[in-house]
Amino acid sequence: MNDTLPSPTPRDDLAVDATGLVKTFGRPGSSVFRAVDGVDLQVVRGEVFGVLGPNGAGKTTMLSMLATLLPIDGGRASIFGVDVVDQPHRVRQLLGVTGQYASVDENLTATENLVLFARLLGHRWPAARTIAADLLERFGLTEAATRQIKNFSGGMRRRLDLAASLISRPPLIFLDEPTTGLDPRTRGQMWDTIRELVAQGSTILLTTQYLDEADQLADRIAVIDAGRKVAEGTPEELKAGVGSSTLHLRLTDRTQTAAAAAVVERALGEAPVLTPEAGGLNVPLANADGAGDVLIALRQAELSITTATVRQPTLDEVFLALTGHHSEPTENDHQNDHETEEVA
């Protein structure tokens, strides 16, 4: 299916180069379901690339295809220029994969797990033991070294899982939702570990549902929804795409929220977004000068406010704005777009 496409000139600065990736799942009684629907992904060597998307967006499916764990149904992908379909064994030597669910052996102890993986990766017994001890030390698991994974907490499991992915010192690391289910402190530790890896020169492709996580860690972000890439750029670019800034207001009398919203809409010609907390309004501004107009209008309507802040939009707002229109699974109308793009 892929060999009809002309080979694009390989870019040797890319760690991941995927074009038009497609994965379909047959669903009994219905037509095929496109879990990943023509995604292009270019990850530059040495960067942290974040894939942001809600549940079921296709993040895990996409990583699985790139990691040779799932057959690719359409498009092509290469890791450091090595084709994923033609050379799976080579690709596996370049990758460390930390899946969404801890992939360590429940019946073994922490040390035994790492020794097993080190042995599988070709290290002799003594070397495997040293590697295991070093990694456990580095991930603060030395005390739990002889405990079975069954008795590990979620956070410990995740750390061991990441440790296991680093045994071969892979130049590219996949992290599928590395901090889902972790408490804030453990999450912070995981972020530090990831930053360390980056400092040592690893390229990282991570997926997350947390916008602050992508903002904190990623050099570039792709937002995917229902198997499609809906946006890509640096965190700043993504935020800028929504409007340069947001005015956040808080009313003294929260019963006046509706009235205030009407006043703001009259002043700017656009409705504000109500925040989850009562009496709060978020007003997207095309440019920051609009803030003055809103404040004057509120003053004239005699609506008093306790706080007013102008700030950059958060990734949450970006996310809503981008995926809000794309949340419905689309039909197969874009099926051939990528083929044509590629030929052009």
Binding site: V44, R220, A231, E237, L238, G241
Partner: peptide
């Protein structure tokens, strides 16, 4: 589709990864 600038060409700080 809200495609924001694609800039895969601009690498971040130069951090060399050793690829076997």
């Amino acid at each position: 589709m809200t495609a924001v600038t694609e800039s895969p060409q601009a690498p971040p700080a130069v951090r060399a990864a050793v690829v076997p």
